[in-house]
Structure formats: C-alpha cells, structure tokens
Nucleic acid binder design. Structure first.
Length: 101
DNA sequence: CGGTTGACCAAGT
DNA sequence: GACTTGGCCAACC
C-alpha cells in the first residue's frame, strides 16, 4: 500500500490544514516533496473528495483565492465562515494564516 | 508514447 | 501593474 496516487497525497496533506488557515498549491506540492503545483490544482479541479477535503483552504502563492469548483465567490464565503478575512478576491493576513508543511 | 491541458509559479518585458 | 515566456508535474486523449 502506501502506493497512493499523487492526488490522494494532496488531499491527505490538505486535510492536515487546521480551520481558519490557508495553504498554497506551492506549499502543498513542496510539502509532499514535489513541484507539481499544476498537478495539485488539477487534482483539486477533479475534486472527487469535494466535501471531504477542504479544498477551499488552498489559495495562490500571491495571496489571491485562485479558483474553486463551486465558484470563487462561494470559496470566499466559506473562508469567511472559517474565520479567514478575504477582500477583493485576496486573502487578508495571508502570511499570518498561511499554513506550511 | 507524444501532445494538450490545468483551481500554478517565477522572471522578464 | 498587465501581459508574455519558460518551466514544472500529473492526468487525459
């Protein structure tokens, strides 16, 4: 076992992110020892674990929310519910709530 | 197995 | 600050 797909690893790592925090595609990829930023995004796009994985806690490295399968607007709403401040599609206190592995 | 795509990133113009 | 180019890796055709 252990032989999980790349995406599966992304989800597992992502589940490690506590509420009220966000992470970046870059942090996720590098956190698992890869540089597949794009691959992480692609995995989220398919998002087979939609409600099981907090994909809404993943944002771009520049602090922008990036995208979301359910709609960026929805993503922001969820983040606000989690206690994250979002303004104009950007994360406030991005570096303060950024969770790295 | 080669080419395209993607919720990306960094640097250059 | 906005757009372009190159690079990166996995998934799909």
């Amino acid at each position: 076992m252990v032989k999980k797909k790349f995406s599966e690893r992304c989800y597992s790592l992502l589940k490690k992110v506590p509420k009220g925090r966000v992470t970046t595609y870059k942090a996720l990829a590098e956190g698992m020892g890869c540089r597949a930023y794009q691959a992480v995004g692609s995995a989220m796009n398919k998002n087979p674990y939609a409600p099981k994985v907090p994909c809404h806690r993943v944002v771009n490295s520049n602090g922008s929310v990036g995208g979301f399968a359910y709609g960026v607007k929805k993503k922001i709403e969820i983040l606000k519910t989690e206690g994250v401040c979002v303004e104009n599609g950007k994360i406030i206190n991005f570096e303060k709530i950024l969770y790295e592995f």
